[in-house]
Amino acid sequence: MKEKKLINKIRDNFFPVAGLLATIISLGILFVLIIDVLKDGYMRLNLQFLTNYPSRIPEKAGILSAWVGTLWIMVLTALFIFPVGVASGIYLEEYAKPGKMKDFLEINISNLAGVPSIIYGLLGLQIFVYFFKLDRSVLAGALTLSLVVLPIVIVATRESLKAVPLSLREASFALGANKLQTILFQVLPSAFSGILSGVILSMSRAIGETAPLITIGALTYIAFLPAGPFTTEFPFITLQGLKDYFTVLPIQVFNWVSRPQKGFHSDAAAGIIILLIISLFINFMAIYLRIKFEKYMRRK
């Protein structure tokens, strides 16, 4: 009888104890990882690290070309995916009639979300780099990454639109608004923070993507910047930078990790600290917007 009680006790406590332990270990790993890169890289963190190009001497190496490249790629990717992703989401959620066509589009997008990002790199290499002759340019990189994260934006847009209550649409239709007006003036504004959260989430994914950009041939060592978008001459804006070569932060980190010298590992760790700060910040922003959106929706 007593023995049975012991077994029962172990059984009753198995999941609470194991579950807590598993949770703590998983998050502990994250903690250890952060401590580890901080320990390895903190001494490289100074202004010069941000303003220097990569160098043969680890102590002089910096991430200027990398963060500028990342900025270029992020801005362009956001510009591409926002309209296309949101439009696709709207079509699927608001216009597409249930049936084979809709099922097909849905399965296709869900499948695209599961395609390894490096495959998109192969696609980008053939289509953007060779077929459209964009070379290994900023534009080719941004287009490739856009395809990688597009499914995230589409799915997030649909979820946000789905959350907009029917009563709101009915109120608009009952006033004689047409579908477009209802979507444009009522549904989209209500879903906006949710959609934005999805776009930002996709950015946090894009900023860490390395493989597809390496595959299209982004350089790992680069000591110049893409031409800036602003000029002194009319019309004061140039798209010249789109055609320039580039690198991004995670590729720079990869390059440093791959070298045998310890000094470069410190550079890598410092680069990681910057990369982590940015991607976690972006991610928290997305979560914050998500929570705000959900609260807002509950108010309805």
Partner: peptide
């Protein structure tokens, strides 16, 4: 919070695996 594990860029995990 768990999701953060999936947000960490994979190069960072690579670094962690190789050097830690």
């Amino acid at each position: 919070v768990m999701e953060i594990l999936a947000v960490v860029p994979t190069v960072v995990y690579g670094y962690f695996a190789l050097l830690f």
